[in-house]
């Protein structure tokens, strides 16, 4: 694939669970200021690939490269240190805690030193308002419980948090799956804002409409393999849908995806 140097790429990655190949020979890449959509039906291997990309899972075979250099990730912490952040659908934020406490969780701004360090709440409030504002979200009270936010706002909070912590690659795992139409649209807008800021975004979805709306590149997974890479100009939601479900013969590889389910 030509174009700008990919921020992150995987080469011939395979993951094997016992005698089952969850992923085989997957090669793909992610570039800056672009939304790369990872699509596939349930069981296509999306979650496994996300686990590899975020350092949760070590691939059985293949290489992982960042800025063209091979790396070995042994935990999500390693991935975070390299600027790869994941936002998960359910695990993003803690409903009983306030917006600012969630935003800074694990990286609280402090003042003072030693055992007497305290959280700098004034700074926390200011930064939350600023960072959310940059994504087009107005926060009225950073002290309010996240549970009182809408689903879209919660996802956006998690995205803003990842960006604030210096994420260059943002992996969004089904950010719109549990949301209604307006909320999903809200999150997609936030994704576009993040792309404007130069972030490389991986959008994992099984919703072709959402993917087609913000995606620049599309990677279709099926039965643990890459069925093909497509550019924005090559696809429509209907074609994506057909590719995902396997009712469409792949023209990228010429391989028959097999009989369609159902």
């Amino acid at each position: 694939m030509t174009g700008p140097t990919p921020v992150l790429s995987v080469r011939s990655v395979g993951v094997r669970f016992g005698s089952v190949d969850a992923l085989s020979d997957v090669s793909t890449s992610v570039t800056e200021a672009a939304v790369t959509c990872l699509l596939g039906d349930n069981g296509a291997g999306k979650s496994t690939l996300v686990a590899v990309l975020t350092g949760v899972l070590r691939p059985t075979t293949g290489r992982y490269l960042i800025d063209g250099a091979p790396v070995e990730l042994s935990s999500p912490r390693d991935a975070l240190a390299l600027g790869i952040a994941a936002v998960h659908q359910d695990l993003a934020v803690i409903p009983l805690m306030s917006v600012w406490r969630n935003f800074f969780l694990g990286a609280e701004p402090v003042r003072g030193r030693g055992p007497l360090r305290t959280i700098d709440r004034a700074r926390a409030y200011r930064v939350v308002r600023e960072e959310m504002g940059r994504l087009g979200i107005r926060v009225r009270d950073p002290g309010q419980a996240v549970g009182t936010l809408s689903g879209g706002e919660r996802q956006s909070l998690a995205i803003a948090r990842a960006l604030h912590r210096g994420a260059r690659v943002l992996i969004l795992d089904e950010p719109t799956a549990a949301l209604g139409v307006r909320q999903a649209s809200f999150v997609l807008q936030v994704i576009e804002e993040a792309r404007e800021r130069g972030v490389a975004i991986v959008l994992v979805s099984h919703n072709p409409d959402h993917a087609a709306r913000v995606g620049d590149r599309f990677v279709i997974l099926r039965q643990g393999r890459v069925l093909g890479h497509f550019d924005r100009s090559e696809i429509t939601p209907d074609r994506l849908r057909a590719l995902m479900s396997g009712q469409y013969e792949s023209w990228d590889t010429g391989r028959s995806p097999g009989q369609s389910p159902i």
Binding site: I94, P95, L96, M97, R101, I119
Partner: peptide, 9 residues
């Protein structure tokens, strides 16, 4: 903050 989080999520 970590105590709240350890229990809340």
């Amino acid at each position: 903050n970590w105590i709240f989080a350890s229990g809340g999520g």
